[in-house]
Structures are given as structure tokens and as C-alpha cells.
Design a protein around this nucleic acid. Structure first.
Lengths: 174, 174
DNA sequence: CTAGATGATGACAGTCGCTGACATCGCGTG
DNA sequence: CACGCGATGTCAGCGACTGTCATCATCTAG
């Protein structure tokens, strides 16, 4: 169904595609579609839970000596590695999302979720407020900016490297 | 209509309030409600355009010597001053938003808009990428964390001070 | 091997968010 | 007074989503 949805979104756009259309192409009924996805948008955000967990675990696994920001960034790198070998798919998906505000909303909500688990993981590491929240936000910011650059790059480059570069640029801010 | 909507959201919650309910209490038709607001959620985000403009102007008006981050933060302070004397309303509104994911989505989209105009204003100031984007995100992050603290504080305190404190905490991140 | 439990799906009706089209009304202008 | 214009009411309709019940396959206990 995910593949059916992405194909249709590519062909006619998100708004012009009805939930029934997706279901039909996937060979099921509309009702079944909504049993698998809470709403029509969710079909594009399947892996977000996995990303959250990956980041969370990576932050807890980071060396004890890491600063809050470094630990949080380790989480972003780990999450980024999930995408590294699926750039094709990520580019396609991000183009669809960029074309529709309601999908951007959902993307932002998912990212806010990542900020939350990141901050939570930092708190478990003993980081207190407001540093945990700020570091969580900052790490996700770096991820976001790096991701944008990664998907819009002409020649392929490593997302991990983008993250490192933007992390350095963030620290360089006065 | 805005007041009618907020009252109803307080009484029964956002989901349990139909667009027709709001219109009825406001003494108009559902159709006219949708002529004034693009959708049911938008009724809670009336001042967001004003905030964007205020921030944009303040950033351009910031002293030339300010660093990108300082200029962006000046924009957040200016935006924050719009709320300073309406804390009552802000608290009520933020409680409603916090209770409903789809409202959080919309809030995040509005904040993303602020990030955009902030970055754009910085670019006009001659800041290049990725610094403009990173500083824009960072400033809004500070605003967000400061706002959260401001609305949840027991004894009233100044939003401007919250912003300053969190800006300092952000810079203290290693 | 059969009866019953369990989980996924189809079928269908209904609510609500939202839109387009047309009619109406109040108001200022020439 | 006639006319234009902007705001509103009315109505029909689509699509997103949900609750409910029936069906069917699979699995398990006896």
C-alpha cells in the first residue's frame, strides 16, 4: 500500500489522490487502508517510529564523556544511517512532502517527536533542563538542515558528513 | 468567532466541537466561518502572520554589529513582546493546543514559517547558508523553550527574560 | 477431526470538514 | 434611483474517517 500511495502521489499529487484510489491500486478496500494507517498522510511516515527508537538508543549508548549536544548528535547520525542507503526513496518522498503543506505539518510533528525522545534520552543521561530540550532541538535542527542539503545535492554525498558539517557550523554561530 | 471557538474548545475540547457549533455560537453560518478561516484549526492561529512580520522587521532593524544569532534573537524578543501583555490568553490557547495533536501540527507549521522568515531576514543581512538556516532554527528553538517555560510558570515572569536565559543556555551548550 | 477462538478483511451507513455555485442583502457611488 | 460590490445565507456534494456487523482464514483445544 505504501508503494501504491507513493506512485499515485507522484502521478497526480497528494490532494488529487483519494484514499479509495490508493486502496484500489493496492487491491484492498478503503476501510482496510484506514485500519493500517491512522490517516491518509501517515502512509508516508512509516519509519518514523524506528527513527525515534534508533536515536534514543544511540544517545544512551554514546560515551559518557560526550557533551549533551555531542550525544544528541550521535543519535542523529545513527538515525541518518538508516537513510544512507535509501537516498533514492528519501528524495522521492521528500519531494512529495515538499509539495504539500499538510504533509509538511505531519513531518514537523514527527520531527517534534524526535526532539522529544532525544531530550528524554539526554535527561536519562543526567542532563537537566533547559539544556536537554535545547540540545534536543539543536540536534534535530542540524539533522533537518543536513537532510535538506543531502536530498538536494547534485552529486551524491554522505548524510553523515552533512550532519558533521552542519554541526560544526552550528557551533560556529556566535 | 475566535472567542466563540476558544470557549467551545475549552468546554468540550477541539474534536468534540464542530465547525457548525462555532458558527452558531458566533451567530453566523458554517459557510461564513470557512470564508474567514481556511480551516477549523486556523481560528487559533490568527496572529501568526503578525508575529512573522514583527520578527522579520526587528531582525532587519538590529544593529549591524550583531552576530546572526543575536539578530535572530532580537526578532524573537520583538515577537515575544507582542505576547507579553496577553499572558492570560496565551496560556489558555497553549493549553488547548497541547491537548490536540492536529493543533500541534499547525503550531509547528507556523513556527516553521517563522524559521523561514527569520532565515530570510538574515540572508538579507548578508548571512549565507547554512548559517542563516541554523541561526533561524536556533532562535526559534530558544523562543519555543522560553515560551513553554513562560506559560507554565507559577508566578508571572517576563517572556523577554525567559528568552534571554535560554539564549544563554543555548550558547553554553558544548 | 471438529468446535470454538482470534484476527484480518469486506460491506455499509453515517458524521464532519470543507468547497463550489447561486441567490440575497446592505451599502456607498454616480 | 440604478448600479456595483462585498459580505452573508442556502444548498448540494465530495472526500476523510469511523462504528458496526458479517465473513472468512488460521490456529488451537479437546
Amino acid at each position: 500500500m505504501i508503494r501504491a500511495a507513493m506512485d499515485l502521489f507522484d502521478e497526480r499529487g497528494f490532494e488529487q489522490t483519494t484514499a479509495g484510489d490508493i486502496a484500489e491500486r493496492a487491491g484492498v478496500t478503503e476501510r482496510t487502508f484506514f485500519r493500517h494507517f491512522a490517516d491518509k498522510r501517515e502512509v508516508l511516515f512509516d519509519g518514523s517510529k524506528t527513527m525515534e527508537c534508533t536515536a534514543h538508543d544511540a544517545i544512551l549508548a554514546a560515551p559518557a564523556g560526550h557533551s549533551p549536544l555531542d550525544a544528541a548528535l550521535a543519535g542523529m547520525v545513527a538515525a541518518g544511517e538508516l537513510l544512507e542507503d535509501r537516498r533514492e526513496h528519501a528524495v522521492r518522498r521528500s519531494r512529495i512532502v515538499a509539495a504539500n503543506p499538510s504533509l509538511q505539518e505531519r513531518e514537523l510533528l514527527k520531527l517534534a517527536g524526535v526532539v522529544e525522545v532525544t531530550a528524554e534520552a539526554l535527561r536519562i543521561r543526567g542532563v537537566s533542563e533547559p539544556s536537554a530540550a535545547l540540545a534536543g532541538h539543536s540536534a534535530v535542527t542540524v539533522f533537518q538542515v543536513a537532510f535538506t542539503r543531502w536530498v538536494s545535492a547534485q552529486q551524491p554525498l554522505a548524510l553523515t558528513d552533512c550532519i558533521a558539517e552542519n554541526a560544526a557550523a552550528l557551533r560556529a554561530l556566535k
